[in-house]
Design a protein around this nucleic acid. Structure first.
Lengths: 159, 159
DNA sequence: TTGTTTTACTTGAAGCTTCAACTAAGACAA
DNA sequence: TTGTCTTAGTTGAAGCTTCAAGTAAAACAA
């Protein structure tokens, strides 16, 4: 067994910053969305991913991939969103194992009304702190990390 | 009411990457720590922050700041860590409102035994994906975002 | 075709986090 | 000193996430 390599100064700074962002950023966005529409950041993302999909529907697995969530977590959340009238579950015509989640009109209205405030919050909490070059760097470095965590993650598909 | 400014390509890439990292990285580290010692990343960080503090103790408020957590969350977790014999609660001599969390010997042994595996995981999941320059850039940009989220966050203190 | 494995998803229980309410002590003000 | 405000922390309940187990259909194998 060899000695582990401890983190150097920059590695430690990068790691601690990421860890802090990780806790603070979702919490702040949750607060904004909770106030605006009584939903969480994760709820919002589920609706957002459906709203951007062709036909406003996606199989549960694909929706789970696009929200980086487990199927179990997604299933519970879709049940909740269904009770609120924002999403419906439908059978897949070609494969009976598949459940398709479909954004309703009410769900679409909800996300359309929430999007401006949410985007403003993302800018205020994160993007406004950075120069254009910082944003490009973060995009590039962030995608490297995502590739390391999941080498066929959906956000890397169009590259 | 003005039109919101939507995200441009790089902004969207940066935001989606951060959101994905945010879900995937803690999940992967949780899995490693759960397997190695049946604790979460947050539990680990609480122990780590105490182990690095002078005297291996900190007031609850300070520990909450260093783990970016609410006092409520920390209080529940310290109760759990206390039941496992890793932390003790003590009264503060000068101010009776303050509770001091103190890492026990058993707690120190735990973190010492877990640290190498955890650091290896942080490297494997994140740092190994980046060049030295990337790491320095991420540290710089990450700290800008942290400053935006909380302008006197503890990781910015030594600057 | 029959049995086996894999894929897609759901469910209930256990554990974790948040929220609101609460206690208690220190600081401040008159 | 007395009352008020602020700070520090705890608690229980509600809601969210994970985990393990289960169902059912599709794919594969002999």
């Amino acid at each position: 067994m060899t000695e582990p390599r401890w983190l150097n100064a920059d590695e430690r700074r990068a790691w601690l910053a990421l860890l802090s962002i990780n806790t603070l950023l979702p919490a702040a966005l949750d607060t904004q969305l909770q106030a605006a529409g009584k939903l969480s950041l994760f709820d919002y993302n589920v609706l957002a991913m459906l709203s951007e999909a062709e036909g406003r529907f996606l199989p549960m697995s694909e929706l789970a991939a696009r929200t980086s969530a487990s199927l179990s977590r997604l299933s519970h959340v879709v049940t909740k969103l269904q009770r609120r009238g924002w999403v419906e579950r439908e059978a897949h015509p070609g494969d009976a194992r598949v459940t398709v989640a479909h954004l309703t009109e009410a769900g679409m209205d909800t996300i359309v009304s929430l999007a401006p405030g949410h985007v403003d919050a993302v800018r205020a909490l994160m993007l406004d702190a950075m120069t254009d070059e910082d944003v490009a760097d973060l995009a590039r470095i962030g995608e490297k990390i995502v590739a390391r965590l999941d080498d066929d993650h959906w956000i890397l598909r169009e590259r």
